[in-house]
């Protein structure tokens, strides 16, 4: 099974996303932002990094890359997409997920091992977890503060679209401790923390992140 990882200029964690996909048992497929060819992938990961230096707003320019038009069309037709960190920012900028990510409230880049509560264990990317499960995966960002208007946040929570919340400390001042959200159909998921950095005992704080990638494998095989 083929899962694409898009590399934008300034993408950094693309090799890590590809490794996580491989460790979960799928085939990572490298996709280039400037192409229009999704190369028959069945799902796409938008990796972390600083696409285009995050110079306009984080994720803003990447959201308008040629390949993203294909991703947006396919996602609206049900193709699963996971946005990690900068990838989450891209999904919000592209309008596939609600809200926006802004400068951390303390104004520092912060890298730490973070406890998350999984609130939605029924999306294409989270079926390996149970609702309410606590997982530890790294968070590392400078612009990870999730914001939206109070009405939008109320609606989001009412619809049950908060997929993850920060537990034991909010690393960036995100509204209502929101770490990640999902689309209405549970196919498009975005989060600031990095599951692809928690897939091996040797290099991660845990292997809790591997579930994202085994979940998608199951979702696509079952579909």
């Amino acid at each position: 099974m083929r899962i694409g990882v898009i590399t934008f200029p300034g993408s950094l964690d693309d090799v890590d996303a590809a490794r996580a996909i491989r460790l979960a048992g799928a085939d990572p497929v490298a996709l280039w932002h400037a192409d229009h060819d999704l190369r028959d992938v069945e799902a796409v990961v938008l990796p972390g990094g600083f696409s285009y230096g995050d110079y306009l707003r984080a994720g803003a320019i990447a959201a308008r890359a040629p390949m993203m038009r294909d991703v947006i069309d396919r996602a609206r037709a049900g193709m699963p997409v996971l946005g990690i960190c900068n990838g989450f920012q891209v999904l919000c900028e592209a309008g596939l997920l609600p809200g926006a990510l802004t400068r951390n409230s303390h104004l520092h880049f912060r890298n730490r091992d973070q406890v998350l509560a999984v609130e939605r264990a029924d999306t294409a990317w989270t079926s390996a977890y149970s609702t309410g499960q606590r997982i530890v995966i790294p968070v590392k960002n400078g612009e990870g503060r999730y914001v939206g208007s109070p009405d939008d946040l109320d609606r989001l929570e009412g619809e049950g679209r908060v997929a993850f919340r920060y537990v034991d400390g909010n690393p960036n001042g995100s509204s209502r401790d929101i770490a990640g959200v999902t689309s209405e159909d549970g196919r498009v998921v975005g989060l600031m923390p990095h599951p692809e950095h928690a897939v091996e005992d040797l290099t991660g704080p845990s292997t809790d992140g591997l579930g994202f990638f085994t979940s998608i494998l199951k979702a696509v095989v079952d579909a």
Partner: peptide, 8 residues
Amino acid sequence: TLLANPVI
């Protein structure tokens, strides 16, 4: 659509 993000 580009210079500003109307969400925020």
